[in-house]
Design a protein around this nucleic acid. Structure first.
Length: 424
RNA sequence: GGAGGAAUGGCAGAGUGGUCGAAUGCGGCGGUCUUGAAAACCGUUGUACCUUAUGGUACCGGGGGUUCGAAUCCCUCUUCCUCCGCCA
């Protein structure tokens, strides 16, 4: 959520910058300004009337104490009008606040200055690439065939137990998942991240705090009976740790990591994109989250990008890093880098990580602040997060790129974690 | 699942209808003293909003109600504790 002072004082900039995201904010901003003005007028009068009532009440108390019951009685009768006015004012105030809030949540985060304009994927900017493309034989097959051939992932059984998009990992397939999770968590820990194991369901407030609600409600599984949501990413519980928290400046930066399963309904997706592990309703992911001082958040973003990059390098996968253009960047993000690995049999780039700086957009929703040491005032912190990494597409690329006549050869770094180097 | 008790400022803990945003202690911050530190003493120490010269309003787990006036009374929800039952 953008802050009210920003919109009030720089409405032109807000409108201009949101154009990069192909979002026309003119009308909403106009309404925000009007509603905000209205709201403040109501608030001012309400406060004044409350003050009046408080004064009268205090007086009545004194009169009763002094035994001047008749005078007290008179004063009491005078309050009726005042009370009625207060009632009207406070209901118009909360109405006005609701309207304002509904407007504010519709505005996306401002993109960072460096975000290139663009309509979609095609306009993303490649900023780095690395790794070697494997040379596969003509018999090379996509990972869904390999999964069956080596009996490590059973899509049919997952389908039987639950439904499509819920794969069942078996034997070395299951062990490989566990190995990757441990590898990622260990690497994150070495880079200074504290490990968490959070709840997998969150309440509405948490969903709102990180920006999934109210807009992306359809993307999450909802447990209606208890009004809980299955997390689409560990970002949600791990960032919401700091909802309504005021940190000391010296607490920053906070660097957290967590492994969780992630649940996504992904309504509307279909066809070739969803084959095998490419797109799932349940998948495993290790996430990194940072709470940062505003002056250092972009430095932190670069550091996170480097960190994720070396993970992929250690896995010896061909990759590229893209800076998302205005049209592809998410509602909540100011700047996002996507990481893609190349799955050689499908001959497709698969997104395995998305690293973003949300600046104060989430923090404003979360009411996550720190205390500035100079001014002693509370200031919104910056939040960042990224996958390090999402497992299924990594597995897809590992299987496809490393297939050989005698089986799948795992990268060396994983062997201590798996206990085997070939899946055959 | 059943029965009882509780929820107050960073923490502990008073406060059962009026001047209570809230005693007191601890902690934090600033100062005096000291070569320095400790101790002692003095001061200060919640958040948000409105208005800004001041000043005002709201908030004592959440929501609603009674009253001229609510931390205090009533209703409701949530959470925690104790006991019983069930259980990985």
């Amino acid at each position: 959520m953008l802050t009210l002072p920003l919109i009030r004082e720089h409405s032109d900039t807000v409108i201009k910058r949101l154009k990069i995201k192909n979002f026309d904010a003119t009308e909403i901003v106009q309404k925000v300004l009007e509603t905000d003005k209205q709201r403040r007028e109501i608030q001012t009068e309400l406060d004044a009337r409350q003050a009046d009532l408080n004064a009268v009440s205090k007086q009545i108390g004194i009169l009763f104490k002094e035994g001047k019951n008749e005078e007290a009685q008179e004063a009491r009768e005078k309050t009726a009008l005042l009370k009625e006015r207060i009632k009207t004012l406070s209901s118009t105030l909360s109405e006005s606040e609701n309207v304002l809030n509904n407007l504010l949540v519709q505005l996306p985060n401002l993109p960072h200055e460096s975000v290139p304009p663009g309509k979609g994927e095609a306009d993303n900017k490649k900023i780095a690439e690395g790794g070697r493309f494997p040379r596969l034989s003509n018999e090379a097959v996509p990972h869904w065939d390999l999964a069956g051939k080596y009996d490590i992932i059973d899509f049919e059984l997952g389908n039987k137990i639950t439904g499509s998009g819920f794969p069942l990992y078996k034997g070395k397939g299951a062990k490989l998942q566990r190995a990757l999770i441990n590898f990622f968590l260990d690497e994150n820990q070495k880079a200074g991240y504290t490990e968490f194991l959070p709840p997998l369901m969150v309440n509405e407030d948490s969903g709102f705090g990180t920006g999934q609600l109210p807009d992306k409600e359809g993307q999450m599984y909802h447990v209606a009976l208890d009004n809980y949501y299955l997390i689409p990413t560990a970002e949600v519980p791990v960032t919401n740790i700091y909802r309504e928290v005021i940190l000391n400046a010296s607490d920053l930066p906070i660097k957290n990591t967590a492994y969780t399963p992630c649940f996504r309904r992904e309504a509307g997706s279909y066809g070739k994109d969803v084959r095998g592990l490419n797109r799932l309703h349940q998948f495993d992911k290790v996430e990194i989250v940072q709470i940062q001082h505003p002056e250092r958040s972009y430095q932190a973003l670069e550091e996170m990008v480097k960190h994720v990059e070396q993970l992929i390098q250690k896995l010896e996968l061909p990759y590229r890093i893209l800076q998302l253009c205005g049209g592809d960047i998410s509602f909540t993000s100011a700047l996002t880098y996507d990481f893609e690995v190349y799955a050689a049999a499908q001959q497709k780039w698969l997104e395995v990580s998305s690293v973003s700086n949300f600046e104060s957009f989430q923090a404003n929703r979360l009411k996550l602040r720190y205390r500035d040491e100079e001014t002693k005032k509370t200031v919104l912190a910056h939040t960042l997060n990224g996958s390090s990494l999402a497992l299924p597409r990594i597995v897809a690329a590992l299987l496809e790129n490393n297939q050989q006549p005698d089986g799948i050869h795992l990268p060396e770094i994983l062997v201590p974690y798996t206990g085997f180097d070939v899946i055959s």
